[in-house]
């Protein structure tokens, strides 16, 4: 690839990483949602309209995206969080579909309809992209291990047990959706700024599935996962296109299957690292500790029991 092509690919990887972080933020609380794509679309078209009619400084543009996205996230959470997991996921996919219909059918002066609309490219620079990504990653890293972070872990792993620890799953998921919304909004603004032209297909199911795949394959249990996943799965198809031609997707597909089978928790897997470390502490021989039988042993243990 030429240097320019590399640059463009890496820029898209960065924007995809932001979208992936947005999906991760709600997934962290146990909510599978593609809504960030919709949040991104609304922010981007609003940005395009406001910047085109009134003018908007780059920083205000990002702020607009964050605030608008967070607000939409709160609204979505308020309406949808009561749904069970699968239905909730489907409802957010429906939001993405509805978004396209809205873009096509709203008065053309707002969205440009089928022809799309122009967006100022002030934010489409490396500095803004890296700056935003660093801030987003920093926020997620700080939240890990915080009061919210541990509650989110608990809700994702076992909402029923989390509830008996006085954690309200709905509240945690509500906060997760707001963070997800803010990140999605910012990602949408940056995406539109890099493209400088957005249409009804810019924020559609393809973007949703690519970024969701990035989260799942990169690792949905640590903030680094979505970033690594987005970079790998944006760059890889481009790298493979030259030697493989049309077959690049086959390789990506095979790689996805392999990762799902052998690394079900993704490329960045903190739990696996911890497991490896735990093994070192074990006494030699790797047997269970003297305190009791091996916890992996599914057999119930013999105990003094009156019940026959």
């Amino acid at each position: 690839m030429s240097t320019t092509a590399w640059m463009i690919t890496l820029q898209f990887a960065g924007v995809n990483a932001l979208f992936a972080l947005a999906i991760y933020a709600s997934l962290w609380t146990g909510v599978l949602s593609l809504a960030p794509v919709f949040f991104g679309a609304v922010s981007a078209f609003t940005f395009g309209y406001v910047a085109g009619t009134l003018g908007l400084s780059p920083f205000l543009g990002l702020l607009l995206g964050a605030v608008l996205g967070a607000g939409l996230g709160a609204l979505t959470a308020g309406l949808l969080i009561r749904l069970d997991s699968h239905y909730l996921a489907m409802a957010t996919i429906a939001m993405v579909l509805i978004g396209r219909v809205l873009i096509l059918n709203l008065p053309a002066e707002y969205t440009g309809g089928a022809t799309g609309t122009l967006v100022p490219g002030d934010l489409g620079t490396w500095a803004w992209l890296i700056g935003t990504l660093v801030v987003a990653a920093y926020v997620m890293a700080r939240l890990a291990g915080s009061r919210f972070g541990l509650a989110a872990d608990a809700v994702r792993e076992d909402p029923a047990v989390a509830e008996t620890l006085a954690i309200s799953p709905r509240r945690i998921q509500f906060i997760g959706m707001i963070i997800s919304g803010a990140l999605g909004g910012v990602a949408g603004i940056l995406q539109s700024s890099f493209l400088q032209y957005i249409g009804p297909d810019t924020f559609y199911t393809h973007l949703g599935f690519v970024t969701l795949a990035a989260v799942v394959l990169g690792g949905a249990f640590h903030w680094l996962g979505p970033i690594v996943g987005a970079i790998v799965f944006t760059i890889l198809p481009e790298l493979l296109r030259e030697p493989m031609g049309e077959y690049d997707r086959v390789v990506t597909g095979v790689l996805l299957v392999l990762i799902i089978i052998y690394m079900p928790r993704g490329l960045v897997d903190v739990r696996r690292l911890r497991l490896v470390r735990s093994r070192w502490w074990r006494p030699k021989g790797g047997g269970p500790e003297p305190g009791g039988p091996d916890p992996r042993d599914p057999q119930p243990v013999v105990r003094a029991e009156v019940v026959s």
């Binding site: 739990r271 911890r274 269970p288 500790e289 305190g291 009791g292 039988p293 091996d294 916890p295």
Partner: peptide, 12 residues
């Protein structure tokens, strides 16, 4: 710092 799920039954 061990994973809670790797402990012995009693410790879990």
């Amino acid at each position: 710092s061990a994973l809670a799920e790797t402990l012995s039954y009693g410790d879990q």
